[in-house]
Simulated assay, not measured.
Amino acid sequence: MLPDDTLCLEALAEGRVQGVSYRFATRQQAEAEGLTGYARNLPDGTVEVLLCGPREAVERVADWLERGPEQAEVTQVTTREVTLAELPRDFTTG
Results as ranks from 00 to 15, higher is better:
L2P: 01
P3D: 06
D4W: 13
D4S: 15
D4N: 14
D5R: 15
C8H: 07
C8Q: 02
L9K: 01
L9Q: 03
L12S: 09
E14L: 08
G15T: 08
G15W: 02
G15H: 01
R16P: 08
R16D: 11
V17A: 03
Q18Y: 12
G19C: 10
V20G: 02
V20Q: 02
S21V: 12
S21Q: 13
Y22P: 00
Y22C: 07
R23L: 05
R23K: 10
A25K: 11
A25G: 08
T26Y: 03
R27Y: 07
R27G: 04
Q28D: 15
Q29E: 15
Q29A: 15
Q29R: 14
A30I: 04
A32S: 15
G34Y: 12
L35R: 00
T36P: 03
G37S: 05
G37W: 03
Y38E: 06
Y38W: 14
Y38V: 01
A39V: 06
R40E: 14
R40Q: 13
R40P: 05
R40A: 15
N41A: 11
N41W: 08
N41P: 08
P43I: 10
P43R: 06
G45Q: 09
T46C: 11
V47A: 02
V47H: 00
E48I: 10
E48H: 11
V49T: 05
L50V: 09
L51D: 01
C52M: 04
G53C: 03
G53Q: 07
R55K: 12
R55W: 00
R55M: 04
R55L: 03
E56H: 10
E56W: 00
A57C: 11
V58Y: 03
V58M: 10
E59N: 14
V61P: 01
V61Q: 04
V61A: 03
A62F: 03
A62V: 04
W64I: 08
L65E: 05
L65A: 01
L65R: 02
E66S: 15
E66G: 09
R67K: 14
G68W: 01
G68Q: 04
P69F: 00
P69R: 04
E70Q: 14
E70A: 12
V74M: 05
V74I: 09
T75E: 11
T75C: 06
Q76E: 15
V77N: 03
V77R: 00
T78N: 07
T79R: 08
T79D: 00
E81A: 11
V82P: 00
T83D: 09
T83R: 14
T83A: 10
T83K: 10
L84C: 10
L84T: 10
A85T: 13
A85N: 14
A85R: 13
A85V: 11
L87V: 08
P88K: 06
P88C: 07
D90N: 02
D90M: 04
F91Y: 09
T92Y: 06
T92D: 11
T92L: 08
T93L: 12
T93C: 10
T93I: 15
G94N: 14
